[in-house]
Nucleic acid binder design. Structure first.
Lengths: 373, 373
DNA sequence: ATCACAATCTGAAACGTTTCAGACGCCTGG
DNA sequence: CCAGGCGTCTGAAACGTTTCAGATTGTGAT
């Protein structure tokens, strides 16, 4: 079934079956003993080459090679030094979801890229709440700091993170005295989008919302649910929409996941139930993409019969000619990384609020007639 | 610029400014001393509740709360216990690239999901080779095992990983005696795709390849480059293509990154330079997507003037009606996770080779005329 | 009353480093 | 000839746990 085993790679130093013990790891102390030098000196050979003669250093490194010593144990080193070189990224949803969202992927990629420069790495701490209701992973993670990407306000996760009292950066969240906040002007972007529709003459507007609160519930939204504190991003965008549409009638539906299929389904339901809707405000481009499918499926031509606006301005949205709200996703990642580096250096870092901008493309137009259809 | 700071969240236990020292962390030993019990007992209160009376345990936990003791330090615990609960994922390219590839994202999401069940987390160890030529991150990562996702055969990274002698799973790579290999039948899938084209009557076929080797180089491929060992996946797919097309003329071009824009550009170049080409074999759906754009841009109708086949069968490809080679990306992630769990449990895990399957959709058809156009 | 046994708690040895405060020679400048 | 300084190297104290092998009780069975 498998391809035959090829000859071993040029690979890694020979299995050191010469001197080294079979199973046990060689320790720094043993190496020192073998050589008849102090452990401090061996440690210095690795960490402070200027503290010993080049000659002795070579001898030590040589013997290490010989005995199969891999270099100082990272864990022990971290314990002693008091830092791990790892930043925890906490994410509220299952990781497969995180990776599936292009905006999240882009953002995380940039964060990783930034902190990588400083020799740090990212530890993914997703916590599908049901699996670890006590936020165990957050409590027991060996990290130097946390980046909280997408946790609801009341989340156990958020509480557990703050309890650790480590350098913490909150992304797209309410700002908090014990952490740095980096976000975008969600409400302003949403307002701009909604205003654009209002100016075009739309009066019956559907809103395809992201999750309002952690308990999954799709479909029409009750006022109680809208009022309850949940995801900051969703709440702000919704606020932005509403504030710019004092005159319009708003039809609000909630999706359970930020994926095209959800957007399609919810948008279709909404449009079927309220045929008077002439425009859709979607809280993400991913949802908007689904909404476009829904329109097609219902035989509505965009933008003639139906206007659609997204949020995020994903790279792929330009090709779709989607009118949307741009946000500096990549820069947000950079800023988060920078903020973390500052915190780790002991410096203060200010909260950051990045701008958003409406990008008008081809999916918006005046409603079909002056009166609702 | 920022929204005003809202009142603090319901949040985390009060800053414990009562008893606890200001800056310093409270240690287990201190807590024990305060209570007049031994450190062993405090440790047991956290790790083995059955080893002490419920009453004393409550007293300890209460005092911990009081003094602001966060629970056993994860680092010290890991050192003592000999395991960290972290699996390193090593990726050959910058992370923003990793996240940007939908197939990679899906795969990683599933890996994460699987190992999460066992209380493990993923540490992202991307290593743009130029930044850490010595694979420092791999050498100094505190992990219990490695998953190598996308490293070239001769990669320093791969060598460094194997040197650590930790449980290791190689993905889409040549199998190696010191590690478990999980992959797909790349060549078979590629053959099937190529055979499909041959049977349709295509004789001049363009191949839009993924990277052949780590040194980025786009465009036409020299035989030397094709011969040099590089990425297993690319090599296998290419082998599959060639083996099924003994009669056809193959025009090979290489992309520098697995993104649509690259696919578009390279495909357009190829088609302009060799107008006799009637079909394109793309090594990923992402590239195929770009190729479709290129065709449109050149005024070629698909599949009438040009056939296009992808690889991966991304979720989005069905909507594009793209003929492609399906691979069990999600299952691959599961298998990798499982293999790792087995290795960590001390059990052996066999190499795994998953099947691929050609999915014929609407982007393939016979070439325009019997003779090349 | 005695013995074995469970329940509860403790002392001390790891785990594998880093780093601080010297110690020891040797050289240089005065 | 001495003070001071530099270049090398070392001893020992952390770092904050877990865990093994008991010690000390109380309890029920014999």
């Amino acid at each position: 079934m498998c391809s035959a085993k090829p000859p071993p790679l040029p690979a890694a130093a020979p299995p050191g079956r010469s001197g080294g013990r079979v199973g046990g790891r060689v320790t720094l102390r043993e190496l020192a003993q073998q050589l008849g030098v102090s452990v401090a000196t061996v440690s210095n050979a690795y960490n402070r080459p200027d503290q010993l003669s080049a000659q002795l250093r070579q001898r030590i490194l040589g013997a290490a090679q010989e005995l199969g010593y891999q270099g100082p144990d990272p864990l022990a080193r971290s314990l002693r030094r008091g830092r791990t070189g790892v930043i925890g990224v906490v994410y509220d949803a299952p990781l497969d979801y995180a990776f599936a969202d292009p905006a999240a992927a882009l953002f995380l990629g940039r964060v990783a890229h930034t902190i990588e420069q400083a020799g740090l790495n990212l530890l993914l701490l997703s916590s599908p709440g049901n699996l670890h209701p006590d936020a165990q992973p957050v409590r027991s993670a060996s990290v130097d700091g946390f980046i909280v990407y997408c946790a609801a306000e009341a989340s156990t996760l958020l509480g557990a993170v703050l309890e650790r009292r480590l350098p913490t950066v909150l992304v797209d969240q309410r700002s908090h005295p014990a952490a740095v906040q980096v976000g975008i002007d969600d409400a302003a972007g949403a307002s701009a989008a909604a205003r654009h529709l209002a100016e075009l003459g739309h009066r019956h507007i559907g809103v395809v919302s992201l999750e309002l609160a952690p308990e999954r519930r799709g479909g029409p939204v009750t006022p109680e649910r809208e009022a309850q504190p949940g995801y900051q991003t969703t709440a702000e965008r919704l606020r932005g929409y509403r504030s710019a549409l004092p005159e319009a009638r708003i039809y609000l539906t909630e999706t359970e996941q930020n994926i095209p299929r959800e957007g399609e389904q919810r948008a279709a339901d909404l449009l079927r139930q309220h045929p008077q809707i002439t425009a859709l405000l979607c809280m993400s481009d991913v949802l908007a993409q689904g909404a476009l499918s829904a329109a097609q499926q219902l035989g509505l031509s965009v933008p003639h019969d139906l206007s659609v606006i997204g949020y995020d301005d994903l790279p792929s949205s330009a090709a779709l000619n989607l009118t949307t709200v741009w946000q500096p996703t990549a820069e947000k990642g950079d800023q988060v990384g920078q903020a973390m580096l500052h915190l780790l250096a002991g410096e203060a870092a200010p909260d950051v609020q990045l701008p958003t901008r409406l990008i008008v493309r081809g999916t918006t137009a005046p409603p079909p007639e002056q009166t609702a259809r």
